[in-house]
Design a protein around this nucleic acid. Structure first.
Lengths: 214, 214, 214, 214
DNA sequence: TATGAATGAGGCTTCATTCAT
DNA sequence: CATGAATGAAGCCTCATTCAT
């Protein structure tokens, strides 16, 4: 970013531009946006755009960063259910709490991808051409953290050595399956089916044998 | 395609152009390619390009189609292991054959994504902006078919009612997790770990309760 | 023309190409035609086209020449009515024969412009960008000749000193008024009205005082 | 037009571009102009051209509109001579005023077609491929209006039922005869002869029998 | 600072013409 | 002679970025 927006006016301008970028992305797709569109949508001139952002990339980067943090926050605020003592004692079979939580997170994900007119959807789709890997990274990191805490609290007796691998696999599996599902026009499957399937897969994976023989 | 490549020369030209497109995609990325680049890489003039393809899109489409068919073929040729009688009788625990097969497919997938200088990687990444959905469709369909046959043969006593949902979830989970993994520059995890994790998840999911209570 | 088509085959080819050009002109407009279109329509290769014609211009020129001669012939075959002795004696008032002839020619003109799917219309419209002025020239010349003969026979006592000027004016007036009329989509006037008006104007002009004071 | 030329600079740019278009049309012909030529002639970049005009067509349209209005204005400012009482009473023979006016208009027309290095000539020639029919429409409409007023004032006793047909015929006859005359390289006739002939024809037609038997 | 006019490199596509087979 | 594949100059238009006001 070219300029630290300390002034109030500046911050407003920066925010307006980022918001305009978001709007343009949802309306035109990530590679349909132009600096003119964004400036016009923000109600400012192209010149101003370049006063606050080095180039188009920087704008998208700023947008992505902002969203990533928002999502990360929201994820953290999710009312995850703590496992009861009973379940914890029950061993591998007591996955009701886990299942509920996974289900909740997936539903949250679907809600997210469908919100803001598909803004997140478009960004996730184009993750590879985004100026930062932040979205994925932040999301994954958040996921990691959440999971680690959750597991430490609830499954102290379970090995979590390869937790980072599992989280990586799960995060990407869930996210892209959802994105792919939403992208499909012909709805041969209901969102509930997908949610249920994903939940089952994830819970099974998390409850399965850890570093078992193989 | 503008002209049916009946002549030997024509087919050579078409192939050269598709191969040039492939090369350009790996070198410049899907949306870095230009008609001039492709023509030059193929060692012909732009005019020739348009003699055989309606536009740039058509070229990419041809490339994608070709690759999709190749992969589909290769998948079909994978030496999947038939389940033994013992395993089949063993119920959910007898998953050694399944596990082996899943593992084989994932390794095949990694090999594929790493081949051709990342051509497949780039194409899968950009699946949403490809002129055809054929890649995904063909791959998924092939997967479906393979799986259906496999399950019919080996798990006749297992419910496969929601098989299409499971296949959808698995195909996308595996594929995008692999793509994402390869895309990561810092290798915090080994490919073996990912392969193992994915296999475990998939096998668990496929061996888990079918249309159980939930 | 590059080659004298003495052989039968050659002449056939030349004719086919010219006819194809005609078809393309009516279908695509004079500046919508391409050598490929023409060759394809003629059922031959572009190469052959260039074997018989230096370039695209030459083709159009050949077409125009052919048509001009055809029209010229047809004009000459028009059954113009000879004036009766009575009329000739009657002076300026005896214009029934003239009027009939003018009317006939105009109707002939309309029929021509509406024939061949508007081929003539398109060519007259584009007279200025035609490779030859032949159409106009031949038509005008034919007109001149016809008129000269006609007047010599029928109006020997009338001065015809400025006949060439009158013919020039009349030919162009009539032709372009017709062309413009046909081009108008909204038919605020009937073709009969136009025909009648043109006839009246022309007859009046031809019967008017010759080299009078002015 | 893409941008409203509110600013002084903008209007200058727009004017420069239209003027450059005019110059290019006279130098290269209507279908010899290119966006680069025009921009270069105007002394600006292609980009600027597209800042003010949607495409090449829009430029030509703007030029044509401008000229059409100019001509229309000029036509209206022509000092047409009102008929004297004597003439009006004199019936068909009192056409001195009319003849003078027709003559004046034709001379005006010649002056116009010969001005601006043949710009008007080229545009009239290409009337059918101009983006708007406005030229012809505006000119014809102006002509109509002028004539109507003129005839109402001066020939109240003459039937003018088919005036629109007559105007249509006259306008096109005169205009295209002039255009054709100017286009002819070999001057077998003087401009005076043409002017005189056209005047005679027009006056004769306008003074002739109205809706007479036929 | 804010503006938005101006820039111009660069991308896509067409089509008349040539030439090896 | 016929073919049609190959050529490549040329045209149109876009858009990220700069800079004078």
């Amino acid at each position: 970013m070219r300029k630290k927006p300390k002034q109030k006016r500046s911050r407003q301008m920066v925010d307006a531009l980022i918001e305009a970028t978001a709007k343009c992305v949802t309306e035109l797709g990530l590679d349909g946006i132009t600096t003119h569109h964004i400036a016009e949508t923000a109600g400012v001139s192209v010149g101003s755009l370049y006063q606050y952002f080095d180039d188009k990339e920087a704008l998208v980067e700023a947008l992505v960063d902002k969203l990533a943090n928002e999502i990360s926050e929201a994820l953290r605020r999710l009312p995850l259910i703590e496992q009861t003592m009973m379940e914890q004692a029950g061993g591998a079979e007591g996955t009701a709490g886990l299942k509920g939580n996974v289900n909740m997170i997936i539903q949250f994900g679907f809600a997210l991808l469908n919100s803001r007119d598909g803004l997140y959807l478009e960004l996730v789709r184009n993750w590879h051409s985004l100026p930062t890997d932040r979205v994925m990274d932040i999301l994954q990191q958040t996921f990691m953290d959440l999971s680690r805490v959750y597991f430490l609290k609830n499954y102290q007796n379970t090995p979590i050595e390869d937790l980072h691998v599992r989280i990586f696999i799960i995060a990407n599996s869930v996210m892209f399956t959802m994105v792919r599902y939403i992208g499909q026009p012909r709805m041969l499957m209901s969102q509930e089916e997908i949610t249920k399937g994903l939940t089952e897969m994830v819970v099974g994976y998390l409850s399965g044998p850890g570093e078992t023989e193989y």
